[in-house]
């Protein structure tokens, strides 16, 4: 099992465990340890096989078949069709745009907030809490609430615009995807801020002091110290962010129903559409697997780059 060698699960940084010291020779103590470990693991293995890998395997089989009832094997047809289907390609591109927009947005705002709060502003605990509240709120509430706020005729936002003499905006028609990105940034920035705050607090004060003595200005210090030393955090935000934003479903489902037209038909929403609206379950399964493969490859590439730049 080469994976064991390529994935050092117990890091070199941790103190060597007693089992390690004894090497790979199977002593009675080590045998007991192995048995204990497996006993502790039984529930988890049963659970993940039954609730993740078995369904995943079933879905994989479905992706090689057609239709809802009496599925016929169709080989790779569903995959080939999806790869050349303009609807799927469009939805994939929309998802990339959504992921890029919401990641860039929440990284910029999250970093800005973290830098400001890290100065020891008074009341920063209160501010931090306020900023984190949207992150703890259910997407079902967030979707309905923004749907109401953005409503062109009865929404508070347009009412406010009218009140100050500005024309009302039809946000969900003129910039639907950007609106969803905005809602995501609103919800996720607090979380990103927290990650950056943790990253900032791990930068030793002495590094700043030293460069200050060298006469470096604020901008130089930000560029030379803060940005590079935060790079691992940024990298981590990007990786986790890509995984979660590529899987966004709740917002188009609740706020726009994928519309207007196909403007917000994010990939997972499209999978939902194919499954339940278009009744094309084999096709939907193939699409879901293509997305899974894409996310895995993307994470893999990110990992390679990250490792080369020594970010992980």
């Amino acid at each position: 099992m080469s994976l064991v060698d390529t994935v050092p699960v117990v890091d070199e940084g941790t103190p060597p465990s007693p089992t390690r010291r004894q090497g790979r020779r199977v002593t009675p103590l080590r045998r007991k340890q192995i048995i204990t470990a497996y006993l502790f693991l039984i529930p988890a293995v049963v659970f993940f096989v039954a609730m993740f890998f078995y369904p995943l395997f079933n879905e994989l089989l479905t992706s090689f078949t057609s239709g809802l009832t009496d599925p016929v094997p169709v080989g790779f047809d569903n995959y080939l069709r999806a790869l050349s289907d303009p609807v799927v390609i469009h939805s994939f591109l929309v998802t990339l745009e959504y992921a890029a927009g919401s990641l860039v947005g929440s990284i910029i705002i999250g970093l800005l907030l973290a830098l400001m709060l890290n100065q020891g502003l008074r009341g920063r605990v209160v501010l931090r809490t306020m900023i984190l509240v949207p992150y703890m709120t259910s997407i079902a509430i967030v979707g309905l609430l923004w749907r109401n706020i953005l409503d062109p005729s009865v929404g508070i936002l347009n009412t406010a615009l009218h009140a100050v003499g500005l024309p009302g905006q039809e946000w969900l028609n003129t910039a639907p995807l950007q609106t969803l990105i905005g809602i995501t940034v609103w919800q996720e920035s607090g979380y990103v801020m927290m990650l950056f705050l943790a990253g900032l607090q791990a930068i030793p004060e002495e590094v700043y002091e030293a460069s200050k003595i060298d006469g470096a200005g604020v901008w130089t210090r930000f560029r030379r110290i803060t940005v590079p030393l935060l790079a691992p955090t940024t990298f981590f935000v990007l990786l986790v962010g890509v995984i979660s934003s590529m899987q966004q479903f709740g917002l188009p489902y609740i706020v726009t129903n994928g519309g207007p037209g196909d403007a917000t038909s994010l990939f997972v929403f499209q999978v939902y559409q194919e499954t339940f609206t278009n009744q094309d379950i084999g096709y939907a399964s193939a699409m879901a697997f293509l997305l899974l493969i894409f996310i895995l490859i993307l994470s893999f590439i990110q990992m390679r780059i990250g490792r080369r730049k020594d970010l992980v």
Binding site: V4, V7, V10, A37, F53, A288
Partner: peptide
């Protein structure tokens, strides 16, 4: 805290479930 055969593989498989959209299953 333990070291045992297949440790890396099992840990990896469990972590990989984070990438599986709920829709797939």
């Amino acid at each position: 805290k333990f070291d045992f055969p297949l440790k890396g593989a099992i840990f990896t498989a469990i972590l990989a479930t984070m990438m599986i959209s709920f829709f797939v299953r």
